[in-house]
Amino acid sequence: MQDRSEDVPAQPTQPQAEPPRPGSTAPPAPTVPNQSQAHHQPSPLPRPESAPGPYPGPVPAGGYGPPPAYAPAPPYAYGQPSGFPPPSGGRGGGGRAVLWAAVGAVVASALWAGGIFLLGPLGDDPDLAGYRARTDLCSSVDYTALRTEYAERDSAPTHTSLTHEAIDQSACSISLKTSSSSSYADAYLSVEMDLHKSTDPSPEFTALWSEYDQRFKDYEVERVSGFGDEAYLATEDTTSGTGTSGSRSVILAVRDGWMTYQMSWSAYTSSYETTTPPETDEVARWVRTDTRSTLENLRSD
């Protein structure tokens, strides 16, 4: 036997041709590939019914034909948030964590901003300047100076009050008569105190009273000192030269911390049973004096 190298394939055995029989035609000899062709011809691969891998499905014969229909990808585990791109990466765990951290930060910022809008600056406590709510404000009103003109005291003044976690309000209305012979009130006095416990009234108070003459053209407004943090005096006089028609009014508005107060006097010449109402300058002096003593009562009572 002749030795051969292991890396050289064995030569196939040539079949012996059978001699033709008399009277028959010899079939053509089978074509046998030469040695070089046999060595380089690739052997056909098996064609399984299905190919292994992540996408199962039948494989067309010969590797041709339309691509197989793959199963749809599974839905996003937590639902895709609207307005945000899907997390990157094959597994998605880190992407989802970053996404929800960003969403949480946005929501927290919105809630924090909403709390500031609804509740005002954090840490602001109401500055009530020592004033307390009154159920009967009339019992604390001192109008001694006004009684220089209106000697008859009102025996049944009216009062109202409101208590709430945001604001406490007290109001008093007094009828003023020059004498007991007066059938009707010659003038009217009203006093109101508001304790603002939720928001600082400073900006609104300044805007309302410093520009009071914008709303009521007949009024004149001036800022006065000696009352709380700020105060405004508003006066009106629409009486005619004869003093038989028109009205006169004096209002003193005061803000002390988060407390707001006003004392208002008004008179109509048509209802005055004597001569004419006193001049607004004179009434303004009385109102200032009575406001000072009334504010002291509202702090000490």
Rank of each mutant, 00 (worst) to 15 (best):
A185T: 00
G95I: 09
K177S: 13
V59F: 05
S88D: 09
T144G: 08
H164T: 03
A151M: 07
C172R: 10
R132H: 13
R91K: 12
Y78H: 03
G104F: 13
S109A: 14
D186L: 07
A113C: 08
P54S: 11
Y70N: 06
S175H: 11
T148H: 09
G92M: 14
A71P: 13
T135V: 12
A185L: 02
P58N: 08
P74G: 07
P87H: 09
L122P: 06
G65S: 05
F84V: 10
P74F: 06
R134V: 02
I116Q: 15
A97R: 06
P67T: 03
L162D: 10
Y55E: 15
L176V: 00
L128T: 12
D124H: 13
E192F: 00
R153S: 15
Y55T: 11
R132T: 10
Y78A: 06
S88G: 11
L122I: 04
D186K: 06
Y70V: 08
I167A: 03
P121Q: 09
T135I: 13
A171H: 10
A166I: 01
C138T: 02
A108R: 04
L118H: 05
A61R: 12
V98D: 03
G83T: 03
R91C: 08
A110G: 11
S82T: 09
R132G: 07
A71W: 00
G83I: 03
S155V: 14
L128A: 05
D125Y: 03
V103I: 10
A101R: 10
F117Q: 07
A133V: 06
S179V: 04
D154L: 10
A102L: 13
E165I: 06
P126W: 03
A73F: 02
G89Y: 12
Y55C: 10
S180I: 00
A185Y: 05
A101E: 01
L189R: 01
P67G: 08
Y131D: 01
T163A: 09
G130L: 04
P72R: 08
C172T: 09
L122S: 15
V191M: 02
L176Q: 01
I174V: 15
S155N: 11
S50N: 10
S82Y: 09
P85E: 08
Y64K: 14
D142K: 10
D186M: 07
P72V: 04
I174W: 05
S175I: 01
I167D: 01
A166E: 06
A105L: 11
R153H: 12
G92P: 00
S182T: 05
P85W: 00
G90A: 07
D124K: 14
K177G: 01
D168L: 00
Y55I: 07
L176T: 00
V107M: 06
P157I: 02
R91A: 13
